[in-house]
Each structure stands twice: as C-alpha cells, then as structure tokens.
C-alpha cells in the first residue's frame, strides 16, 4: 500500500498570519464545504428534509444560518454552501452525507478544495475590509449572519460576518488565495494607519 497523499493549502501558515494594529488575519480553511442547489423545483420538500436533518431553515436572502452540525450560507437563488462544523476534514464525507440525505432534491458538489476561507477579526477589521470590498459593512447595513457575494478588488469572494467583534470570513477561490491575502493585509495596514 503506497503512502497516502498529504494535503497542502495555498497559503503557508507562517506567511499567512497577520496580527497588527488590532487586526488579525488567519487561514480558516479546513472545513468541508459543498455546494447545494435545488433540483426538481420542490423547494418545500428540500426545506423539510433539511429542517429534519439539521434543524435549520434554508435562507432565501443573503444570510448564513447554523444548524446542528452543519451551517448553510446562501449562495444565490436556490443555491447554498453547506459547511461542516469541524474545522478539519475529519468526519464523514460531506458530499456523500448531503447526497444521501437530499437525494434527487438537490445537486450536491464538493467545494471544500475550491474555496479558501480567510478570517479577519478585531476592532479595525470592518475598516480594513471596507477598503477592499465595494459593499456597505456598516452595522446598519451588514451584521452577524449577513453574507454577500461580491468583488474584493478584482477577485470574486463570498463574505459573511461571524460576530460583532467584528469578525468576518471571506471565501475565495483557491487559486486567488495568495492575491487576496496580499490585498487583505494591505487593507489591514491601511486601516491600522487610519486608526
């Protein structure tokens, strides 16, 4: 039996951590992620199945909701990203679990390697992220549980607010991770300077 293959992220841990001026940036990759999209048009049946399995209502607006063991982030009309709670890829294969549970009600696609999650947190993180994202992150417009698909500079991202610290998670396609990380750190430096 040959040796198993070892995983490697696009950001090396040493290069990726940033902690200055009250802003921390960390690589939060590792959770299993799968795309879920309604098939067959029976939304009520999909809702019921999800509610029964994970105790949560699939959001119809750009929100992220936590169920038991699984979190769903709105990712477009009748589309979601399902994220495992575990921050590593232990536990049963998410794509398999979802396919088994949802059957023909939804298309399920593994996205765990497709996306890298960067977390930015600390008092200055809203200002930092505001420099990078063209959306309004003011608490009156965007609060914990809200998510948005948008552009960070020229890079497509999905962002959501985790808590009012504030903490934000930013999902980006893996191949862009280093570019986004560079831009995020630059924005953090700019925000630290302004503060």
């Amino acid at each position: 039996m040959p040796d198993p293959l070892h995983a490697r992220g696009p950001l090396s841990p040493s290069a990726c951590s940033y902690d200055h001026g009250g802003i921390r940036i960390t690589d939060m990759s590792g959770r299993q992620v799968a795309g879920v999209a309604l098939l067959g048009g029976d939304r009520a049946a999909l809702d019921a199945t999800v509610r029964q399995a994970w105790g949560v209502d699939l959001p119809d607006t750009p929100r992220i909701v936590a169920g038991s063991g699984l979190t769903f982030a709105w990712a477009g009309p009748d589309q979601w990203l399902a994220l495992s709670d575990a921050v590593d890829d232990s536990g049963p294969d998410l794509e398999h679990v979802l396919r088994t549970t949802l059957g023909p009600l939804a298309a399920v696609t593994d996205q765990g390697d497709s996306r890298v999650a960067l977390r930015i947190s600390g008092p200055g993180s809203r200002d930092a992220l505001s420099r990078l994202l063209p959306i309004d992150l003011h608490p009156r417009a965007f609060s914990p549980g809200n998510t948005a698909l948008t552009l960070a500079g020229h890079i497509g991202v999905q962002v959501w607010q985790v808590d009012s610290c504030p903490t934000y998670d930013i999902l980006v396609f893996r191949s862009f991770a280093r570019s986004l990380h560079h831009d995020l750190c630059a924005a953090a430096r700019g925000a630290a300077r302004a503060a």
Partner: peptide, 13 residues
C-alpha cells in the same frame, strides 16, 4: 431544463 451548474475549476488539481 432541470439542471444545475457550479464551477469546480479550483476544486480539482
């Protein structure tokens, strides 16, 4: 058409 599409360009090496 009952069909769904999602990019997996970055998912697979």
């Amino acid at each position: 058409y009952d069909v769904r599409m999602i990019s997996v360009t970055d998912q697979w090496a």
